[in-house]
Structures are given as structure tokens and as C-alpha cells.
Design a protein around this nucleic acid. Structure first.
Length: 561
RNA sequence: GCGCCCAUAGCUCAAUCGGAUAGAGCAACGGCCUUCUAAGCCGUAGGUUGCAGGUUCGAGUCCUGCUGGGCGCGCCA
């Protein structure tokens, strides 16, 4: 419908140019927006106001000229000028209703498009090191990252979900030392406990499993415990696999899966780190100082230069990061999105600078980042501190168990990543029926119920009758719903373009709200078969879009509640 | 001190990337279940959009400067 109106306006525009009423060079971006207020019709354009100045006319006068020059259309019942110079379009009822059959015919495909066809996109998210269970922050990353992937897929992109982690290095050594200590019966408060050890109870579980000779299978590795309390390498390998397996369970419970698990250690073993260093040195962007090797990242917008190789010879994490992203580029991903916690925001400039220094033709702003702000968890009005070392914190699994997967996912994805959020456990648990996810799911279930009831009455949906009766959907609340449904495809586009899955959650709230209002005001099960079938079509279209939307968030669409 | 993010009703958040009278939920108060699911609907009340300027037909939205909060600023990851 928007396209139709845009076309009408464009025709009028060309006509006025031909008449000389407008400068020939004017080529405005014609915008047609859904009207917020029913009194303003269905769609509105601000074209006259934008062109008033170049045309040297008052906006309202120009609007009048535009309308006069506009061809008539069967779909438009009237056009009005309002306010400072808006042109408001009133769409006739049966033309507006046709979208219902676009929806019912397309089914699960409605709203999906092929904009990204042939483009490989990689989304890296969660990327938690295997030193403890996943917490709420990881949950936010998982919910946002996975929805982003679903959105990109809905826009036709070929998406790879990737998880990057470190299975070697100082943190993993601490993990192994902690497990070894537990095996020997040393507890976190004993003097012999390792200084930077992980104090959580799960370390005891790892120790027990190791000594039992258990075999653990994670999505990307399988390890059988050596049960030898002195073999640090074996302990390390087992602990990593054990924790990766735990994370897999968390992610599965959350409905999130990955295509690729990428190890930092692979970058070393395959020589990619060395190759990256070599290339950076040859590029002339490095220098030695204080016995360390530096990269002049200030040449690329960083506020200070960064150390690549430490005085003692090892590399900083920065270097494998650059090597890793070079590898992503070489794998052919035209778009890479890194979903991370905002506490890592300083790596953005650094990684991009490192990639520019490689001088391999990687675009300046590559890769993209979606940084989510911190999640504060409260219980009994008190903030719950997230400290992995202290071992007292809320895991993602706790939340899923207490609040449910649908509610947890919906909650974590329904706010802009740029905003901090508070996860009130008491609220989520005790008043779980107030969670917005149920409001949306309820709309879906209600339509299912109506449909079942109709069938019970022997009033099965008659498509032909419905098609012929769309003009009967003239209640303002029905029209609002129809227009809302019509805006679903552009919502899917915009949410993906802007990397903002919360726009989907917001849309579903509005759709549900308009549905519930309509449901209470307008009865579907009426004697008049024409009206009844038109309204059934509306309900079924709502259900379809609701299901498509919930799916993009990884949330189920129950048939009954 | 420097950088990134944020600030809208008592609380949690919206506002269709600059549009018309800033909207929902929770909490408060009052209505609606013999009729398609009351996890719902309708109504009342609640606002100087942190402060001060600027840009223009038009600003919660863009720019500048403040104030307040979060996160970073390591040869840790």
C-alpha cells in the first residue's frame, strides 16, 4: 500500500515539475508513514512540507497542487490536507483488507524477504571462556545474538553462528589449579587455595567427575578423565570439556545453538598469529620499546598505541583478536557482527585499527559491533553481585528454571542493547503472568481457541466467503489491526538493518494490544457468514504474524494457555 | 582526567531514525465474565522529556556545553 501511495505522489511530483511549478532538479526522498491517529487516515506524507522551501510555496498550497496533480486510485477513498501540510490518505476498506490474504497465503514466509540473498554473514556471540557457568550477561548476549541471526536469516542472509573461546592461557591455568586443589580436598578458604582460584561449588563437581574417570561430551569436544590427580594437562583438558558441556546444556535450555566453535589456541597452532605479526611488522606500523613490540594503532584512530608482544615474549590477547578477525574476513564474510558486553567496548577501535594496519583491503568500519550494556540482577530489592570467583551469582540456568525459557528470552531481548537493564528475579518469578511475553502468546492462543470454537459450531473457515467480504472489516479497531499487520515486513527489514531485535518485541506488544482490544469489542462468532469469515481471516492473520514474530525471538507460540 | 553508553509518569519502558495532542505495563482508584480463554478489556489519575543554549516550517529525537549514573582506560582476557 505504501508503494502505491509513493507512486501516486511521485506521479504528481513529476507533473508539477513538467508544469514548472517545481524546480526540475528536485528529487526528494518521498516518505509515506503509517498515520498514528485514525483521524489522520491510514497513511500520511510530509512531502509538501519538505518541498515548500525549494518551491517557494506555503506547504498547504503545495499540498493542494500535489493532490490536484495526483491520479486517482481505486485503493484510495479520499485524500486530505491537515495540520501544517501533511497529506493524509484514506485507504478503502476492501483494498486494505487484501493484506490478510497476503499473510494467509504466505504463511510462515510472510515478512521474510531476499534482500540479503547470496551474502554470508557471521554473528559471533556469547563467546564465554569455559571457566564457569553462563550468567545473565551471557544470557542477554545469547538472546540478542540469536534473535539477530534469525532476523538476518529472515532477510535472506546466509548466517553463521560462531562462538569463540580460549582453552589455554592464564584463566584456564587457574581453572585447572582450582580443580587440582579440590581433588586434594583443599577448600577456597584454606591457606593452600590458589590465589586466583575459582571458588564456585561447580569446581568440586568437576573434581569429582575427573576422579571418577567420567567421559564428557560437549558440542565441540569429548574428553575422558585420566583420574590422575597430578596430571595438570589432563585436568585442564577435562575441566574445559566439562564446563563447555555445561554451557551447551545452558544454551540448549535457552534454544540457542552454534555452527562453529573457534579456539584461540588454533590461531597459534595454525601459525595464524605468527603470520599476522609478520604482516604487521612488514607493513611498517610496529616499533620496539621497553623490550616490547608495539603496534601504532594511533595511526588508525586509537588513543594510544598497543603492545603486541610482551617483554617476556608472549603475545597479548589483542594479537590473536586481530588474527581471528583476519581469518573471518578470509572466510568470505562480507558482514561480521560481534555481539559482546559493553565492558569490552575498548576492543572495537583496537581490532579495527589492527585490521587496517594489515592493509588487506578490509573496510574501515569492519566488523560491526552490537554491544549490550550490563544486566543488573536484583533479588529482594538487593543487587546480586556477579562474581565468578566468589561463586555466588545467578546463572542463566537458574533464570530459565525459575522464570522459564520464553519469558527469559523475551525479557532479555525486548530492550535496546544500548540500555542497561535490571532483571528483578522476584518480579519475574512471582508475577510471571505479568511478563509481556504472555500478553503476546495469549493473543496467539486466543485466535486458536476462536478457530477451534468455530469449527465446533460447524463454521469452518470459508476462504472464498472471506475474500469477498473484506469490505465488512470497517470497524476502526479492525482497520488498526490490518494496518499493523501490513507493516510487519518493513518491521522485519528495519530491525535487521538496525541490528535491533527489540523492535520485534515492541511490534508484538502493539499487535497483541490492538488484537486484545479488538477481540473484546468485536465478536467473531456471528450469524452473518460473510462477516464471520472476514473476521476469522483477520484473526488467523494476526495469529500467523504473531507466530512469525515470536519465532524471530526464539519464543514459542502456544495453541492454548 | 580521557573514551563509549544512558537519562522520558512514583517504578520498568515506548514514541514508526525530525512530524500532528509524548504513549503502554506495573503500582492507585472505578467499572466489565449465563455470550469466541478475565494471562484480557474500558475508564480516572499521573509529564517543564535531567539543565542551558543552538539548528528549522517542526526537536524527546540532531549539534554544543553542563549535571548525574553505568562501563572501560594493564606488557589481564
Amino acid at each position: 500500500m505504501k508503494e502505491t501511495i509513493t507512486l501516486l505522489l511521485n506521479t504528481a511530483l513529476e507533473a508539477l515539475k513538467a508544469e514548472g511549478a517545481l524546480p526540475v532538479g528536485t528529487q526528494p526522498d518521498i516518505r509515506v508513514d503509517a498515520a498514528r491517529d485514525r483521524a489522520h487516515g491510514d497513511y500520511a506524507s510530509n512531502l509538501a512540507m519538505m518541498l515548500a522551501k525549494p518551491a517557494g510555496m506555503k506547504p498547504r498550497d503545495l499540498a493542494e497542487r500535489l493532490i490536484a496533480a495526483m491520479p486517482t486510485s481505486d485503493a484510495i477513498s479520499s485524500v486530505e490536507i491537515a495540520g501544517p501540510g501533511f497529506i493524509n490518505f484514506f485507504v478503502n476498506t476492501s483494498a486494505a483488507g487484501e493484506v490478510l490474504f497476503d499473510i494467509l497465503d504466505a504463511g510462515d514466509e510472510f515478512g521474510r524477504n531476499r534482500d540479503g540473498a547470496g551474502q554470508k554473514v557471521q554473528v559471533e556471540f556469547v563467546s564465554a571462556n569455559p571457566t564457569g557457568p553462563l550468567h545473565v550477561g551471557h544470557g542477554r548476549g545469547a538472546a540478542v545474538g540469536d534473535s539477530l541471526c534469525r532476523l538476518l536469516e529472515a532477510n535472506g542472509f546466509e548466517v553463521t553462528r560462531e562462538f569463540y573461546y580460549n582453552d589455554a592461557g592464564a584463566q584456564i591455568d587457574n581453572l585447572a589449579l582450582s580443580v587440582a586443589a579440590r581433588i586434594k580436598g583443599i577448600e577456597p578458604n584454606d591457606p593452600a587455595w590458589p590465589a586466583d582460584g575459582y571458588r564456585g561449588e561447580y569446581i568440586q563437581d568437576v573434581a569429582r567427575a575427573y576422579m571418577q574417570g567420567d567421559t564428557v561430551t560437549a558440542d565441540d569436544r569429548q574428553v575422558t578423565a585420566a583420574a590422575n590427580p597430578d596430571d595438570m594437562d589432563a585436568i585442564r583438558a577435562f575441566a574445559v570439556a566439562w564446563l563447555r558441556h555445561e554451557q551447551d546444556l545452558d544454551l540448549k535450555a535457552f534454544g540457542v545453538g552454534f555452527d562453529v566453535f573457534f579456539l584461540e589456541s588454533d590461531l597459534y597452532e595454525s601459525g595464524k598469529v605468527e603470520a599476522t605479526v609478520k604482516r604487521l611488522i612488514e607493513g611498517g606500523h610496529t616499533y620496539e620499546s621497553d623490550g616490547a613490540l608495539w603496534l601504532r594503532t594511533t595511526d588508525f584512530g586509537d588513543d594510544k598505541d598497543r603492545v603486541m608482544r610482551k617483554r617476556e615474549g608472549g603475545y597479548t590477547y589483542f594479537l590473536p583478536d586481530v588474527a581471528y578477525h583476519l581469518d573471518k574476513w578470509q572466510r568470505g564474510f562480507t558482514t561480521v557482527i560481534n555481539e559482546q558486553g559493553a565492558d569490552h567496548h575498548s576492543t572495537v577501535t583496537r581490532v579495527r585499527a589492527g585490521l587496517q594496519a594489515l592493509d588487506t583491503g578490509i573496510p574501515k568500519g569492519w566488523p560491526d559491533y552490537v554491544l549490550h550494556q550490563m544486566v543488573m540482577v536484583t533479588r529482594s530489592g538487593q543487587e546480586v553481585k556477579l562474581s565468578k570467583r566468589a561463586g555466588s551469582y545467578v546463572t542463566l540456568r537458574d533464570l530459565i528454571d525459575e522464570v522459564g525459557r520464553d519469558a527469559t528470552r523475551y525479557f532479555l531481548v525486548s530492550r535496546a542493547a544500548t540500555s542497561q537493564m535490571t532483571f528483578d528475579i522476584d518480579l519475574a518469578r512471582s508475577q510471571s503472568s505479568d511478563n509481556p511475553v504472555y500478553y503476546a502468546q495469549y493473543a496467539h492462543a486466543r485466535v486458536c481457541s476462536v478457530e477451534a470454537k468455530a469449527a465446533e459450531n460447524g463454521w469452518a473457515f470459508d476462504e472464498n466467503l472471506a475474500r469477498a467480504s473484506l469490505h465488512l472489516l470497517e470497524d476502526a479497531r479492525e482497520r488498526d489491526l490490518i494496518n499493523r499487520l501490513g507493516s510487519w515486513p518493513e518491521t522485519v527489514r528495519r530491525a535487521a538493518d538496525q541490528r535491533e531485535p527489540q523492535q520485534i518485541a515492541l511490534y508484538l506488544q502493539e499487535l497483541a494490544s490492538e488484537f486484545h482490544t479488538c477481540y473484546n469489542a468485536v465478536k467473531v462468532m456471528v450469524e452473518d457468514a460473510n462477516l464471520r469469515n472476514a473476521r476469522l481471516a483477520l484473526g488467523m492473520a494476526v495469529r500467523q504474524v504473531m507466530r512469525n514474530g515470536l519465532d524471530l525471538l526464539g519464543v514459542s507460540a502456544p495453541r492454548e494457555m
